[in-house]
Nucleic acid binder design. Structure first.
Lengths: 244, 244
DNA sequence: AGTCGTCGATGATCCAGATCAATTTGCCGT
DNA sequence: ACGGCAAATTGATCTGGATCATCGACGACT
């Protein structure tokens, strides 16, 4: 397994020349709902991190020194068992938070799926900011709440759904997320490989592959570009989600 | 399936005659780390709910009108699939929060495992209180963070662990939780039945039963009282957790 | 004390998805 | 255009845990 260990390049935000007020993802991230003063407070402590595909942003067990917000690209977060079994706990896209759990150490490793840009907020300074702007804490609580709901859905999926139901749920969730962000809900873009999908759904690559084929053959989906799935029959896919 | 539909009895806190400052679980719940003013604010909006075993406290999909804190007893929270498959998302004990996810509707149903007493905080008034006492929000964020970490551990368990590893992890987690609350870490008290454990671990009652027997035969645990498991070999059980 | 109903344990069999094993496809650099 | 490599697909076989079925133990009622 050729493990690439690359240093994370880290540059102060201003060198990139893009102030928060001109940020691409302002309205889809936490920043959109903040006051000018709060935004200014964040801007003072933020730096930008650029990651290449495959590069780790945080490591499970490391002291949690910062909190991140994905600006561009995609990230997977996962936990490992000593023997190498892996569970991906989430895929993060622009607007998503990384390391929101305010614990002493990171509970998971996070790795870029593509070239990815993130905003980095040092934890110490973030906590000071939370004291200054309580509203910021509220927003974080809302984010954490949403993550919690998603985690519980995933428990239901992992504990009780069949392979077909899992993959259908996954595709539909990605599609709905895209729609919520104002993008087309089909085709669904899959920046991750079969192995990653498998480790997210508690299955194997083979089962993912076979189930994709089943869906394709039954006409529910169609292979668009490489890494893109067109949802042909939304209704049918939704039915498959809970055992149609 | 004889479904008991019983009204939840609800009485204002003061009628029970126990002010927060004399609360049994002050130091293990959120209340322990609050100022007098914050505690007084909570006391003004709190009421106490008493539930019999099997009674639902909240229902998945209902508007989330309140947030609860378990004072005594035990609660299970679960999600259902239309065909009846069930995933228990957590067991809650004194000090635990219920409905912390500040969303519009409850994401799961919660049901008392035994006679249970809870503190009830109306959501509207809670939000007003959060605005008044930012520190309270911080505390909720910490609670949510911890729940999030637990949820991710559970995803790893459900997605990647074997039946033996799941049950070992479960017993150890209960044992450690008891220890954290200053109780003996063995024997472990199991207020839930085999079916509940199965639905929590993504298995069946039969597999739970068989795995308990395996553990008993190999001398790792011993059956103490009904509903109590003595952990004989802590080390061995921990090894089983990740495939020993 | 007897009866019923529920829960837990255990045995026999089955099957969805894992594992093992080839191919095939697509992508990269040259 | 041409290897070379990693990812995806497909097929054959195996197996951990599900399912189906039975029985015993316990507690709650008369």
């Amino acid at each position: 397994m050729p493990l690439k260990l690359v240093e994370i390049r880290e540059t102060p935000a201003r060198t990139l020349g893009a102030p928060c007020s001109a940020c691409d993802i302002r309205d889809i991230s936490i920043c959109g709902s903040l006051t000018t003063a709060e935004l200014e407070g964040l801007r003072r402590i933020v730096s930008t991190v650029q990651c290449a595909a495959g590069q780790a942003v945080i490591h499970e067990g490391d002291p949690a020194e910062a909190l991140f917000n994905v600006v561009a690209g995609a990230v997977k977060s996962y936990k490992l068992l000593p023997d190498g079994r892996r569970q991906i706990t989430g895929f993060l896209f622009p607007g998503d938070f990384l390391g929101i759990a305010l614990n002493d150490t990171y509970a998971y490793t996070a790795e870029a799926l593509q070239a990815t840009r993130l905003c980095r907020f040092p934890r110490r300074r973030m906590e000071a900011l939370l004291a200054e702007f309580p509203n910021l804490g509220q927003r974080l609580l809302v984010e954490a709440s949403n993550e919690l709901v998603a985690a519980q859905d995933q428990m239901l999926l992992l504990g009780r759904k069949t392979a077909k139901e899992r993959l259908a749920s996954f595709l539909l969730a990605l599609s709905e997320r895209a729609a919520r962000l104002g993008r087309p809900n089909s085709p669904v873009v899959l920046p991750m490989g079969r192995g990653d999908i498998a480790d997210y759904l508690g299955l194997t690559t083979e089962t993912i592959s076979r189930t994709f084929t089943q869906f394709r053959r039954s006409g529910v989906i169609r292979q668009a570009e490489r890494g893109e799935i067109e949802i042909v029959q939304h209704k049918a896919l939704r039915a498959l989600t809970e055992g149609g």
